[in-house]
């Protein structure tokens, strides 16, 4: 597979005012291929979000580097779309203006923008809401807007930071299916952070398990699709789950540091 993202000895440390030093990323080496759907899995505060934000260019590394298509990541770019866990749909723009925003930043003429935005809004099932204000939408619908905006920008890489974390179970399943559908159609490379094992099993082609700022397990998931919420019950999935849980055992990382 063609290499798209290369991460070399990426480290990131935060010096807290109290004098405590946290190694959020600890010399991570990693490559991600074009078209992959990678899930970063781990407990909170173990570096997966930090890596994603570094990939986006929102968080400078302390040492090491990240290259995308051979080019060093130095800051955010429209080449790497991002969907955040928080609601980042701009409340002062209509739904369509939100989807058009990235295209506007790229300098596309208005007519073309509108056309692309309408196509993506239809793809996420919000065609009827293009002129609504975000306040008129539910949390799940706003997430759809964010996804439409991310895809509309046409970035070859989409970074997702626990995007469905705040949603209810059923809505989350809907959106997982939507995302898989869009991924299969566009073959965009997706790096997806989650702490939900089932979500990772449903979505990922590859799971990277994070612990204490390191990738402690790198597994390819070749479970047959379509996968649904019962995926965990499959025999192969049980084996994967067992491996991952062993890696995520309580205090595992503390022992490692000691």
């Amino acid at each position: 597979m063609e290499k798209l993202i290369e991460i070399h000895k990426a480290s990131c440390r935060f010096d807290h005012a109290s004098g405590r030093v946290v190694h959020a990323l600890n010399e991570i080496d990693l490559t991600i291929g074009r078209g992959e759907f990678v899930c970063l899995l781990g407990r909170s505060g173990h570096g997966k979000s930090t890596l994603l934000r570094s990939l986006a260019g929102l968080n400078p590394l302390t040492s090491g580097w990240i290259r995308v298509e051979g080019e060093l990541v130095a800051g955010p770019s429209s080449q790497r779309g991002m969907v955040f866990q928080e609601d980042t749909v701009f409340p002062w723009m209509t739904v369509r203006e939100n989807v058009e925003f990235g295209l506007k930043c790229q300098g596309l003429p208005a007519a073309e923008r509108t056309q692309i935005a309408r196509r993506w809004l239809a793809a996420v099932g919000l065609a009827a809401f293009e002129n609504s204000w975000p306040k008129e939408l539910s949390g799940g619908m706003r997430k759809r807007v964010a996804i439409a905006a991310a895809f509309a920008g046409g970035a070859p890489i989409l970074l997702m930071d626990e995007p469905f974390g705040a949603l209810d179970y059923v809505t989350r399943m809907d959106l997982q299916n939507l995302l898989l559908d869009l991924w299969q159609r566009t073959r965009t490379t997706i790096v997806f952070v989650t702490h939900d094992l089932e979500e990772a099993l449903v979505l990922a082609e590859r799971i990277l398990v994070f612990s204490a700022g390191r990738v402690v397990e790198d597994m390819t998931i070749d479970l047959a699709r379509p996968r649904n919420e019962e995926v965990r019950a499959r025999a192969e999935a049980v084996a994967i789950t067992r491996t991952i849980l062993r890696r995520l055992e309580p205090n595992n990382d503390v022992l490692r540091v000691a």
Partner: peptide, 13 residues
């Protein structure tokens, strides 16, 4: 801050 980051990730100047 999230709005700024979201805009930056969409390539806003």
């Amino acid at each position: 801050h999230k709005y700024i980051e979201a805009a930056l990730c969409q390539g806003a100047s």
